[in-house]
Design a protein around this nucleic acid. Structure first.
Length: 482
RNA sequence: GCUCCGGUAGUGUAGCCCGGCCAAUCAUUUCGGCCUUUCAAGCCGAAGACUCGGGUCCAAAUCCCGGCCGGAGCACCA
């Protein structure tokens, strides 16, 4: 009994320690672009835990740097849009830049409790102090002096770069990363959302730590890059008498097909015109996946299967594609699309109309495709032929190749003979189709019915699954996968 | 330089906390075969892994120590 229990493989996400009574979890992006596949992992896994244990899922925009990680006003909405599409409906949405007012009193309280001091060391000087474990003179200031200086930061007496508020940890801490970290600095540049309303901005460790407490966060999952934050923030929690949430870390994610993706790099590339936008197939964003016809369920299943290991992982889109194929294959209509079309002239009684099933197994009717003595086939198919070859034009008839240049054939019959090479084709008056792929583009001719598939995922036979995104001249489709 | 964290098949993952059911799970991938009016799907089969060295123990993927490899932090970025 117990033995077979232990054998049972764990399904889904690993258990969360101390989550039995429900959880409060958050995903905290910087809105400097739309969510990427990396963000999707955070959104999906956090929200999935909330679904599993009950509680609250919060989206919190950590947008407290108006300059170096300047937020994009549109990106806030993009996140919410993509969250909903991913099935991660937030119970609460927080914007840090709108909550600065709440941070100031906490900073002041921290000073009162002797947990922070205003440090006027030049950046480089402090760096040296930190390396050598030397306490600077400002560190010894009285609480009153610190409160006075804090006011001077707020009222503009102290200029940008002249002072920061530091949390007192331990200048002899064995890990230099933990020593007296900065909580606030002066930034006079306007913030895209709140303008020049504030000149003293919190840094991530302060903002995040305080918000996690304010929001009642029970569990934090964050990247390994923030692994030291816990140690830093615990000092602040201890000064204030708060209880620190449980923390889990996860490693860096890379995807073979995209490399590592940083939002800021993408943003630059888009601004430089290397990509046409945030949703084109070459870009690893959630919206690009959506436009390519990747289902959110496929992404969810994939991310949940990944779990939350601390190992850095380097994955392949193949698994996501395989997951998506299972979802999309039973639904997608089949259509003919001929890339690099070459005209084929056929002599004989070629049927004038083809009846092709919309789906190979699900009986949902037929497409009527006009045929006749002039058709188009793929250049790559033609190149594989020799004069005399018997070929079946799918759902139409059998022909024999009589010439390659120009491409000619003669009608053989409609009977299903023994198994011969089968290719697809496009009618002479087919519609122009352009397919954008992660690694390029294909252009060609397709059956007219493609124009009925706007917004849908279809399978171009012998080509792959695509999503039809625009009906026009040409019709525009994004490639999902084979 | 200081500090922290990882290392199971090509990729990802289960098992590791609480050593024996592990000649190691599942998925993907690749390769065969069957089926088939798509090079899709489906079905069947195969391939492929515990980073290395010590130690503890009757017994180690699992515990301990060390090496190697990889990642991260040491910003008035997030």
């Amino acid at each position: 009994m117990q033995l077979s229990e232990k054998k049972e493989p764990d399904k889904g996400l690993p258990k969360l320690e101390g989550a039995e009574g429900g959880v409060v979890m958050r995903f905290a992006p910087n809105p400097n672009g739309p969510p990427t596949l990396g963000s999707a992992r955070g959104i999906i896994v956090n929200s999935e835990y909330v679904k599993k244990y009950g509680g609250k899922f919060i989206i919190r925009f950590d947008d407290t740097d108006p300059v170096k990680k300047r937020p994009m006003p549109e990106a806030y909405g993009w996140y919410l849009e993509d969250c909903n599409w991913l099935g991660a409906h937030p119970d609460q949405v927080i914007v840090a830049s709108e909550r600065i007012e709440q941070y100031y009193p906490i900073a002041e309280e921290l000073i009162r409790r002797g947990g922070a001091y205003v440090c006027r060391c030049p950046q480089a000087a402090f760096k040296e102090h930190k390396e050598k474990g030397i306490e600077c003179i400002d560190r010894g200031q009285s609480i009153e002096e610190n409160l006075e200086l804090w006011k001077k930061m707020l009222d503009g007496t102290l200029k940008e770069g002249e002072a920061v508020l530091r949390v007192k940890t331990d200048m002899h801490h064995k890990d230099p990363a933990i020593r007296d970290w900065p909580a606030f600095r002066i930034v006079t540049a306007p913030h895209p959302l709140v303008g020049d309303k504030y000149r003293v901005w919190p840094l991530l460790d302060f903002e995040s730590a305080v918000e996690d407490h304010l929001l009642g966060t029970t569990h934090i999952i964050r990247g390994k890059d923030l692994a030291d934050s816990g140690s830093r923030q615990r000092y602040l929690y201890s000064y204030l008498g708060w209880e620190y949430p449980r923390v889990i870390h996860w490693g860096r994610v890379k995807i073979h097909q995209f490399g590592s993706f940083s939002t800021s790099k993408l943003r630059k590339a888009i601004e430089a015109g290397e990509y046409s936008g945030w949703d084109e197939p070459r870009v690893p964003t959630v919206r690009a996946m959506r436009c390519r016809g990747i289902r959110s369920e496929a992404l969810r299943k994939f991310m949940i299967d990944l779990g939350v290991g601390e190992t850095d992982i380097s994955l392949s889109m193949d698994s996501i594609y395989a997951e998506n194929r299972k979802l999309v294959d039973p639904e997608a209509n089949r259509r003919f699309f001929v890339w690099e079309p070459v005209e084929l002239e056929i002599e004989g009684d070629v049927p004038l109309m083809a009846h092709a099933p919309l789906h190979p197994t699900d009986e949902r009717g037929f497409r009527e495709i006009p045929a006749g003595n002039r058709l188009f086939i793929c250049r790559s198919d033609l190149e594989g032929f020799r004069v005399g070859d018997n070929i079946r034009l799918k759902d139409l008839c059998n022909v024999q190749i009589t010439s390659l240049e120009p491409a000619r054939a003669r009608f053989l019959g409609k009977d299903m003979g023994k198994r011969i090479k089968i290719i697809h084709w496009a009618p002479a008056d087919g519609v122009k189709v352009r397919v954008l792929k992660p690694d390029g583009m294909d252009e060609g001719l397709g059956e007219a019915g493609i124009a009925e598939e706007l917004g849908k995922v279809v399978q171009f036979e012998r080509y792959g699954f695509v999503r039809v995104n625009k009906i026009g001249e040409p019709i525009l489709a994004y490639f999902a996968h084979r």
